Lab assay of single mutants.
Amino acid sequence: TEYKLVVVGAGGVGKSALTIQLIQNHFVDEYDPTIEDSYRKQVVIDGETCLLDILDTAGQEEYSAMRDQYMRTGEGFLCVFAINNTKSFEDIHQYREQIKRVKDSDDVPMVLVGNKCDLAARTVESRQAQDLARSYGIPYIETSAKTRQGVEDAFYTLVREIRQH
């Protein structure tokens, strides 16, 4: 089974770092803004072998026109913010609204991801993020692309959301 996953969120929150940590098991430290990259990885989730087709997208506003296209083809979405960047957390709402509009559905598989949880300088409390996820009816997972904490959990949870859909 193949799953088309799309990673969305503001610029600099760590979308590529999360994806590369999942696929290649290493942490990319330097920031190089993405336009669009796709990665494929075969994994076993709950005993089922599946192929993850992951689209890593641009957070930069100037590429926002490309969003409709990949939102149409994606089956599930990782909505990523950084726990030390309140603005990126506030941006999640717009991504969710755009996904709902493009998919013409209120019920699209999504996982809210709070990345950079290895950093002490948190400005978005776990509780705020949990409340937001609960209001959307989606899971919330904290990750660190640096330490790998929660990385597999985030992507695998999204696959489970798609399966249950």
Rank of each mutant, 00 (worst) to 15 (best):
G9N: 00
V28D: 12
G150Q: 15
F27P: 04
D104F: 11
E36Y: 10
P33K: 12
T1Q: 07
A121T: 13
Q21M: 12
E125P: 12
K100Y: 04
L78M: 14
D118E: 12
V113Y: 00
L158W: 08
G74R: 05
A120T: 07
D37N: 02
P109I: 12
N85G: 08
E90L: 14
S88Y: 08
N25C: 06
A65L: 03
Y140E: 00
I20G: 04
L22G: 10
K4C: 08
K87A: 10
A65D: 01
V113C: 05
P109W: 03
I45M: 10
K41A: 09
E75D: 10
D32H: 09
F89Q: 13
F89S: 05
D153L: 07
F89H: 10
A10T: 03
D118K: 02
D46N: 11
T157S: 10
V6E: 04
L132S: 05
A133W: 07
T1F: 05
A145S: 14
D118L: 02
L22I: 08
V159N: 01
G137V: 04
T147R: 08
V8N: 02
E36P: 02
E36R: 01
E97A: 12
K100G: 05
R101V: 05
A121N: 10
Y156L: 13
I92M: 03
R163E: 12
D32F: 00
T49A: 09
Q60N: 15
C117P: 01
S64D: 14
S144I: 08
V13L: 09
A120H: 12
S126C: 11
I162M: 12
D56V: 00
T147S: 09
D106E: 10
G14S: 00
G14D: 00
I45G: 06
V7Y: 01
R40S: 10
E161C: 06
I35L: 13
E161K: 15
V6N: 05
Q42L: 07
G74M: 08
A133H: 03
Y136T: 05
S135C: 14
Q60A: 15
L112N: 00
V8M: 02
E161M: 11
I92T: 01
Y3G: 04
Q21D: 12
E161Y: 09
L52Q: 01
L22T: 13
S135I: 14
L132C: 05
L5H: 02
D46E: 14
K103C: 02
D37L: 01
V151T: 09
E152L: 12
E2P: 05
D56H: 00
L18M: 13
I83S: 14
V28R: 04
V28F: 12
I23Q: 06
A82V: 07
G14M: 00
E61G: 10
E36M: 05
V108G: 02
A129I: 04
F155Q: 00
E61V: 11
Q24C: 14
P33C: 06
R67E: 08
L119F: 08
T86D: 12
Y140M: 00
D53W: 06
S144K: 07
V6Q: 04
T34C: 00
A10G: 11
H26I: 09
A65M: 06
E2T: 04
E125N: 12
D37G: 03
T1L: 08
D68M: 00
D153C: 10
Q130M: 13
R122W: 04
G114Q: 03
E30W: 05
L78I: 14
E62Q: 14
E62L: 15
G11S: 14
D131M: 13
V151I: 14
T1S: 13
A133P: 00
E61L: 12
F77P: 00
I23E: 09
T1A: 07
A10N: 05
Y136N: 02
S126E: 14
N25Y: 08
E152Y: 06
G59Q: 05
A154W: 00
C50W: 07
E152A: 13
H93S: 14
A58I: 01
V13K: 02
Y3T: 09
Q128T: 08
T57N: 08
I92F: 13
I45Y: 07
R160C: 09
V108M: 03
S64T: 13
A10M: 04
H93I: 13
L51A: 12
S38K: 02
Y95L: 15
V7K: 06
T123H: 09
Q24V: 15
G9K: 03
E97Q: 14
H93N: 15
G59C: 03
V113W: 07
T143D: 00
V124H: 07
E90K: 12
Y70M: 15
D32Y: 01
A17S: 03
L132E: 01
I138N: 07
S64Q: 07
L112D: 00
L132H: 11
E2F: 00
G76Y: 07
G76R: 02
K103Y: 08
I162Y: 00
I20R: 04
Q94D: 05
A10I: 13
L55Q: 08
T86N: 08
V151S: 09
D56M: 02
I45A: 11
L51W: 12
I23G: 15
K100N: 05
I141V: 15
L119N: 15
Q60S: 13
R122V: 07
S64L: 15
Q94I: 09
L158R: 00
T73L: 13
Q24M: 13
Q42N: 11
D106A: 15
G11V: 11
M71S: 01
Q42G: 11
I162R: 08
T57H: 06
H26Q: 09
N85I: 01
S64M: 06
I20K: 04
I92E: 00
